[in-house]
Amino acid sequence: MGKKLPLQAARAAVDAALECAAADGLRVSVALVDAGGADILVVRADGAPWFTPEVARAKARTSTAFRGPSEAMAGLRETYPDLFALVDDQVPYRLTTLPGGLPLRHDGELVGAIGVSGASPEQDVQCAEAARAAFAVFHGE
């Protein structure tokens, strides 16, 4: 049986992303999903646009489906659009190539992913990286 992503670790990661955003005056949503793409924690900061939770969720789920950053899928979509569409049809959620989704690993094993939405692509990635760093600290990595 694979490693689990405890709620306490999820909260630490989500809080780090929200703190990163708040430090720059940004209003974002953050989604943290397990390795299967199921929600563990989804938060919309005060003032974040209404649609950002679902975009953050799509970024996180894409990271779990492909086991890499959500934006890395842009090359696959561009080079092999039919393959991307076929994969998209086979997962129970929508995939995206938008930046801001990063996988979370513990001892090298994928345990979930974080997605951030609501700021610029670079800022979303920066906040997701802060979340991933907090997750690693939680696990002593």
Rank of each mutant, 00 (worst) to 15 (best):
E78W: 00
P92K: 05
A74N: 00
G101A: 03
D89S: 15
G101H: 04
T97F: 00
L76K: 05
E78I: 00
D82Y: 05
K59P: 13
T62D: 11
D89H: 10
R61Y: 07
R67T: 11
T96F: 04
R61K: 15
S63Q: 11
R94T: 12
K59F: 14
R77K: 15
G68D: 11
P92T: 01
S63G: 15
H106A: 13
L104I: 02
R57H: 13
A65E: 13
Y93P: 08
H106D: 08
D82Q: 14
T62W: 10
D82K: 12
T97E: 04
L86H: 06
F84K: 02
R61Q: 15
A58Y: 11
T62M: 12
G101T: 04
M73Y: 03
P81Q: 06
E78T: 06
G101F: 03
L98S: 07
R57C: 11
P81G: 07
V87T: 13
G68H: 06
D82E: 14
Y93M: 02
A58C: 15
G101R: 05
A60W: 06
G100Q: 02
L95C: 08
D82M: 13
Q90G: 08
F84M: 06
T97M: 03
M73K: 09
A60K: 05
K59A: 11
R61T: 13
M73H: 10
G68P: 00
P92F: 01
D107R: 13
D82L: 14
F84G: 08
V55N: 14
A85V: 02
H106F: 06
T79S: 09
R57I: 01
L83N: 03
T62H: 10
D82S: 12
L95K: 02
Q90M: 06
T97G: 08
E71I: 11
H106N: 03
G75Q: 08
V91I: 12
M73Q: 13
P103S: 09
E78D: 14
P69A: 15
T79R: 10
A72I: 00
E71N: 09
L83P: 00
L83Q: 04
A65W: 04
G101M: 04
R105H: 07
D88W: 00
T64H: 09
A72G: 09
F66P: 13
R57W: 11
T62A: 10
F66R: 01
L76G: 08
G108E: 07
R77N: 09
A72T: 04
R105T: 14
M73P: 03
D88A: 15
L95Y: 04
S70F: 06
L86S: 13
F84H: 06
V87D: 05
D89P: 02
